[in-house]
């Protein structure tokens, strides 16, 4: 019984890994106060989703889908192509967020989200 579960887990190892990574990223993003760490967690989360998406198209022993003699088993190219777009989007999100972090640091002098909220709150009162 337990062997069966282990085998099933091993068969879905990519999905399992991506879900674990997703949860790590999600948790870090919501609980850590450092803005840079938040961004790193965001990237981990995105990577987890990319891994999940690419794993859908993966095929045991498949090769790059280019017409060459002797190649019969192809990996599904659609998820890879989509994920390339996803990576571009993730890069632009990260770059923009880093620019914002630089500005936040300039204005508040800290990278701690709680301190930023505290400074802002003091000004309101």
């Amino acid at each position: 019984m337990s062997m069966e579960i282990l085998e099933r887990l091993y068969g879905n190892i990519y999905y399992l890994t991506s879900v674990i990574l997703f949860v790590i990223g999600f948790h870090t993003m919501l609980t850590h106060r450092n803005l840079i760490k938040k961004l790193m967690a965001l990237n981990i989360m995105d990577t987890a989703i990319f891994l999940f998406f690419v794993a859908i198209g993966y095929r045991q022993g498949g090769q790059a889908p280019i017409l060459l003699p002797g190649v019969t088993s192809f990996v599904n190219p659609v998820p890879s192509a989509l994920i390339l777009t996803g990576i571009v989007i993730s890069v632009s999100f990260t770059a923009f967020a880093l620019a914002l972090v630089v500005l936040l640091y300039k204005h508040y002098g800290t990278l701690d989200s709680d301190e930023i909220i505290a400074i802002r709150g003091k000004k309101h009162v």
């Binding site: 993003m29 965001l42 989360m45 989703i49 914002l100 972090v101």
Partner: peptide, 21 residues
Amino acid sequence: SIEASFRYLILSALGSGGLLF
């Protein structure tokens, strides 16, 4: 505005992750 937009960015990226998933 920068603080608000950073918070919006983080939550929005979270939403995008959910949508892509």
